[in-house]
């Protein structure tokens, strides 16, 4: 439970958009401009994406399944998923990436927010097989070699949570918003843009403070 390590903000964006993912931008309704800008925030994936994928399932897909390849937090994975499987459930149940949370399963709360090719989406609304070839960043992929992302660091410093259950989603949305030139820098714009992420604990004041303070740190680094 203890953690006293001081974290220095050495966050460096490393990635360009990944070729195979382009075709999905339109499919999921995100604007190309936003996606290109946002891709700068995806931590270290391009290099690993080209490496041999980790094969989760060796066997050929069964009836009702499809074989897909996902690059998750820079690691390529190949697995068979049911055609009705949801991206959120595949990440949590199959890849054991339980940092992304389920708060409603209906796109109403934002707890499941993650980045697909740099675009923030509600992963509970996304069918997994539609993401074949996509690059996904979850909360587990933000810190680099133990160094927290500036948004993570700011959430910790500002006590921008209580129970922590909405936190992954809040952080992923904040990362996307801070990179999105279409979203204003003032408090009202940030509040508006973050309104898809419910915090039932009501830590909104501290979340806003964290997002605004991370903005400064990300700007200095970038």
């Amino acid at each position: 439970m203890t953690d006293s390590s001081k974290t220095v903000n050495t966050f460096t964006p490393t990635v360009e958009a990944i070729e195979t993912s382009r075709r999905n931008f339109l499919k999921f309704g995100a604007s190309g401009a936003a996606a290109v800008t946002l891709s700068g925030v995806l931590p270290g994936m391009a290099a690993q994406a080209l490496a041999q994928p980790a094969v989760i399932d060796a066997h050929t897909p069964k009836a009702g399944e499809r074989r897909i390849r996902l690059t998750v937090n820079g690691v390529a994975q190949e697995l068979n998923v049911a055609t009705n499987a949801i991206l959120l459930d595949v990440l949590r149940d199959r890849l054991q990436l339980t940092g992304t949370k389920k708060g409603c399963d209906h796109g109403q709360c934002g707890a499941c927010t993650l980045l697909v090719n740099g675009v923030a989406i509600n992963s509970c609304l996304s069918i997994a097989v539609q993401h074949d070839g996509d690059a996904i960043t979850t909360i587990e992929g933000l810190a680099q070699n133990g160094t927290l992302h500036p948004v993570q660091e700011a959430f910790w410093e500002h006590d921008a949570y209580q129970c922590g259950y909405c936190t992954s989603g809040q952080i992923m949305s904040a990362v996307a918003i801070l990179q999105d030139p279409a979203i204003g820098r003032d408090d009202a714009s940030v509040r508006e843009a973050m309104s898809g992420n419910i915090c039932r604990c009501g830590a909104y004041k501290n979340i806003l403070a964290a997002v605004q303070s991370a903005r400064g740190k990300m700007a200095r680094v970038g």
């Binding site: 439970m1 203890t2 953690d3 993570q152 959430f155």
Partner: peptide, 9 residues
């Protein structure tokens, strides 16, 4: 003290 766990998932 549990902040790192909460912000890293």
């Amino acid at each position: 003290i549990d902040g790192r766990q909460k912000v890293t998932g």
